[in-house]
Nucleic acid binder design. Structure first.
Length: 570
DNA sequence: ACCCAGTG
């Protein structure tokens, strides 16, 4: 039986019928309700994105047909013949119980990564002859990360927000191109927005580098993993038969990469290509099943990767309560987080609010309105400064460039985040509430200065999924201002006619998933579920859900540089 | 529920 990676979308009827299907395809020696329980429990964890569970600690939450979990179920499994032949669908490896095919796939991925980590890079001999002097602005952890590419084909870099992952990446790239000219390098991330953000921060970070390196690094391609592997309806066009022609690949935001995508990547990656994986264990798990990053850092595996993994610990941003609250959430969980929130002072840079789910608290909508008003003001200022508007497509007058920069900086002042796309306090809901004064549906009725997002890759325009632009001008003169990076690495301020964009969405509010990788001065989080819900019974289902909630909330909070307002239902 | 990508 074949599985797709997005099994979360399976209809419930199908999930319930998995046992029946399995029994028909692979008849067990003995059918039993115990066996049925095991399949249901495996489906239960699968819905949470887990491919296997630890039978010694996992407590099922669904009603089991038979008592005696897990001993009597394991016994039934052993006599069923479902774990001891080639065709058997389930595997019990020590205390790990899982779907055999996925379990083996994950094992293959882990083993291939281990092999790569133990392979010496082509450049290692050259590296030893080159001065090992590293820039002084790097700390010891970061230096260690940079030199580790001299001796390992695989390097894992993990660290929370503000630990300098991007500057480490830039130094790795700088060192690599010093060692070998014409090195073929690519950068990628799981989401379009994260890829663009990476490109943006690399542009900023290379300013400190010598001219030659700066030019080479700022023109590096930076795309989604799907795009790099040329995903299409027939799967990935980059594969074993058509591998990527690369010497070094950096993948950022690894926590969002699932098993299927990782397999596709390794499948398309030449043996001698160096791989640098970067991520944060505390951030979001992938949407599909099989969190590769969290598996690599799990208790029983992480020691195998010690030789090639670097943990960036030193946090450069010190943000008072903001830092304290995110540390509490990550380290102690939701209960401690809610408790601490009650003790926050009034002038804290982390505020809790309650509101009715039908509205946004007035002072938050004030904040949003003020933000929009500033964007509106700057965009009409820009419009006035362009003498040949709307005939031009690229902004080149220095004065206009300055104003456009002001617009994009202003965009980074405020970020409104929601866990969901639809429903109460979703991205859609916020947009409906904020655009209420603009009754006509469609972009022409939205106010000038309003942020919009491209929901699709449009390479012919140099536009990636997740790129955010600003509405300029009205009616037939309406254009969207995008900050794009051309192929030669130059920053381009481009005005695009709305009709040329295939999919355009309001981008005042973002899903937390999309926000991963970017940051803003202030973050407003609308959290529609109750954080204070008592969690008395500490069983595993709650823990899985809670772990997910923690990562989601943690990701949202850590987008903020200066301030967070967290709003929960009253 | 969330991501990516392309199509009926």
């Amino acid at each position: 039986m074949s599985f797709r990676s997005d099994e979360d979308t399976w209809p419930t009827g199908f999930v319930g019928a998995v046992y029946e299907v399995l029994v028909r395809r692979i008849p067990p020696k003995t059918k039993s309700k115990h066996l049925h329980d095991i399949v249901d429990v495996l489906m239960e964890v699968l819905c949470k994105g887990e491919l296997y569970l630890d039978i010694t600690s996992y407590k099922p939450t669904l009603d089991l047909r038979e008592p005696g979990w897990p001993e009597s179920h394991v016994k039934a499994l052993q006599i069923s013949g479902w774990i001891d032949s080639d065709k058997s669908p389930i595997v019990l490896d020590g205390s790990q119980l899982g779907w055999k095919r996925w379990y083996q796939d994950m094992k293959l991925v882990v083993n291939e990564l281990l092999d790569r980590s133990n392979t010496l890079p082509k450049l290692s001999s050259i590296a030893s002859t080159v001065s090992s002097k590293l820039p002084d602005e790097l700390n010891d952890e970061q230096k260690q990360a940079v030199v580790s590419i001299d001796s390992h084909n695989l390097v894992l870099i993990s660290g929370g927000p503000g630990t300098g992952k991007t500057s480490t990446i830039v130094q790795i790239l700088a060192r690599s191109i010093t060692l070998q000219r014409e090195l073929r390098v690519a950068l990628c991330a799981p989401t379009g927005k994260a890829a663009r953000r990476l490109q943006d921060s690399i542009q900023k970070a290379v300013r400190h580098l010598p001219q030659i390196k700066r030019e080479e690094l700022s023109s590096l391609p930076c795309v989604t993993l799907h795009r790099l592997l040329q995903a299409g309806t027939r799967g990935f066009q980059r594969n074993k038969g058509n591998p990527l022609s690369l010497d070094l690949l950096v993948v950022d935001e690894m926590s969002m990469v699932d098993l299927a995508l990782m397999r596709a990547l390794l499948n398309a990656l030449p043996e001698n290509c160096q791989l640098v994986l970067v991520g944060d264990q505390d951030q979001l798990p992938p949407v599909g099943s099989g969190s590769v990053w969290h598996t690599l850092y799990s208790e029983h595996l992480k020691n195998n990767f010690l030789h090639c993994s670097i943990q960036l610990q030193h946090v450069y941003r010190n943000k008072g309560d903001l830092e304290m609250m995110s540390r509490t959430l990550r380290g102690e969980g939701l209960v401690a987080f809610v408790e601490k929130s009650n003790a926050l002072k009034n002038h804290s840079n982390f505020s809790f609010h309650n509101a009715s789910l039908r509205n946004i608290p007035p002072f938050i909508s004030q904040k949003i309105k003020a933000h929009n008003a500033r964007l509106n003001e700057f965009s009409s200022e820009l419009l006035k400064s362009i003498s040949s508007y709307p005939k031009i497509s690229t902004i080149e007058q220095p004065q206009s460039i300055e104003i456009a920069d002001k617009i994009f900086n202003c965009l980074d002042d405020l970020m409104v985040l929601c866990p969901k796309r639809k429903g109460l306090w979703s991205v859609d809901h916020i947009h409906r509430l904020c655009l209420r004064g603009f009754p006509e549906v469609g972009i022409n009725s939205w106010p000038e200065g309003f942020p919009v997002m491209s929901g699709e890759n449009q390479p012919e325009l140099g536009l990636a999924n997740g790129d955010i632009g600003i509405l300029i001008g009205e009616n037939q003169d309406r254009r969207i201002l995008f900050k794009l990076i051309s192929e030669d690495g130059k920053l381009n301020l481009t005005l695009i006619h709305p009709a040329r964009l295939h999919r355009l969405e309001p981008a005042l509010a973002l899903t937390i998933h999309k926000s991963q990788g970017s940051e803003a001065k202030e973050v407003v989080i609308l959290w529609p579920s109750d954080l204070k819900e008592p969690r008395i019974d500490i069983n595993q289902k709650r823990r899985l859900n809670e772990l997910y909630e923690i990562r989601l909330l943690y990701t949202a909070i850590t987008r903020a540089i200066e301030r967070v307002d967290l709003i929960t239902p009253s």
